[in-house]
Design a protein around this nucleic acid. Structure first.
Lengths: 217, 217
DNA sequence: CCTACCGATCGGTAGG
DNA sequence: CCTACCGATCGGTAGG
């Protein structure tokens, strides 16, 4: 049947991807050499190239495995059939936990995507967009007046900003636990959501705004 | 008489720093060559090295000029003598505007600091910490029960997360104006701040915790 | 799986 | 001696 090496091959490949994610996260994609990835994985450089085609594929695999994990998370939560508010609580809680567990991969996803080629980057961005859309839809269900306004996606991105930025300053060994931070994020965001004013004019703004460049002050 | 070259020298140097910031922001520090910086600045590489000592100094100057701008902003707002809530509104509004105006420099500051040497990075991080401290102090003045809790700095970092992350998805040519986003951030954060629960047990943890605190970078 | 290499390009500097 | 540059190339190292 299948080649005997497959299981061990995938194990070794997984270890290489994890080590690559660690090095990319710490030193950046460009500043990380394939020699370093090989050494950290306990193999020679030619052996490394037996498991991955090239440096870009290494980056793409790290990013896509992480995106796939996040999409699975979204599917799980949607399968629970919760009302929107409870669904958002679950989403935040599980995303923060997933980010914490895959800290290196998450950093690579948020910082090194620009080093992918155009098609590869487009795939990754499309995956991210699908995840963001679920959050945005949930927000609209919680506040129907957001529907049609231009605010649903920006609000979603502010929420992602809190979660994503968290892992630039929250140390895993620190006194603050990730799950307690997830609670704070939830309280802050859900508590503040009702205070955000939806401008009545924003609904028609998609028609009235010309493609004229609006420089941010 | 004073050196005639000084004014022109500083102008040229400023242009080089701006071009370096643009290239670093777009392609990353490591992936940007000194040849590209030189070409973008309209000078030869030897001439580039007449204006900067080396590549690391280029990165350090971009980061420090931006930090200095932010510290000046903080000083301006503090000089207004506003009550804490209005002070925070002003801080958010001006920081978002400053980030928008110095978009490239801001991206360099948040993504490429790791490529600085130890001493240089320590200087930059110290500057960031001073800025963060003003935000955190203002939060504590708004909610005195945050004093002594471990939540003031994390909450501040959530606020910075919304602002910092904003410039990864908000396009300058887009329909959404930066100042209107500053309003949304303010409404969301101030509206949600009252909903955040301060755990009673956390109060004593700040005294019992040794220097093992989170480094808010 | 290793040693040994390649085309190219890196950051930085020589002489003029 | 200084400055402000240029064309050319240095020693090392990148991905492969």
């Amino acid at each position: 049947m299948g080649r005997v090496r497959t299981a061990a091959f995938e194990d070794q490949r997984g270890l290489i991807l994890a080590q690559a994610a660690r090095l990319f996260a710490r030193n950046g994609y460009t500043a990380t050499s394939m020699n370093e990835v090989a050494a950290a994985s306990g193999v020679s450089k030619p052996t490394l190239y037996h498991y991955v085609q090239d440096k870009h594929e290494l980056l793409l695999c790290v990013a896509e495995f992480h995106i796939a994990r996040l999409q699975a998370l979204v599917d799980e939560v949607q399968a629970l059939g919760l009302p929107p508010r409870e669904r958002l609580v679950q989403l935040v809680q599980r995303f923060v936990a997933a980010y914490a567990e895959a800290r290196n991969e998450h950093r690579v996803l948020t910082e090194d995507v620009k080093f992918l080629g155009d098609e590869a980057r487009a795939r990754v961005v499309a995956g991210q967009r699908r995840v963001v859309a679920v959050f945005a839809d949930t927000l609209v269900q919680m506040r129907p007046d957001l529907s049609g306004s231009a605010l649903a996606k920006p609000l979603t991105m502010l929420l992602f900003g809190m979660m994503n930025w968290m892992f630039t300053w929250l140390r895993p060994e620190g006194a603050i636990r990730c799950d307690s931070m997830a609670e704070v994020v939830t309280e802050l965001f859900l508590g503040g959501l009702g205070s955000v004013q939806v401008p009545a004019t924003t609904t028609t703004s998609s028609r009235s705004t010309p493609p004229k460049k609006e420089t941010c002050s």
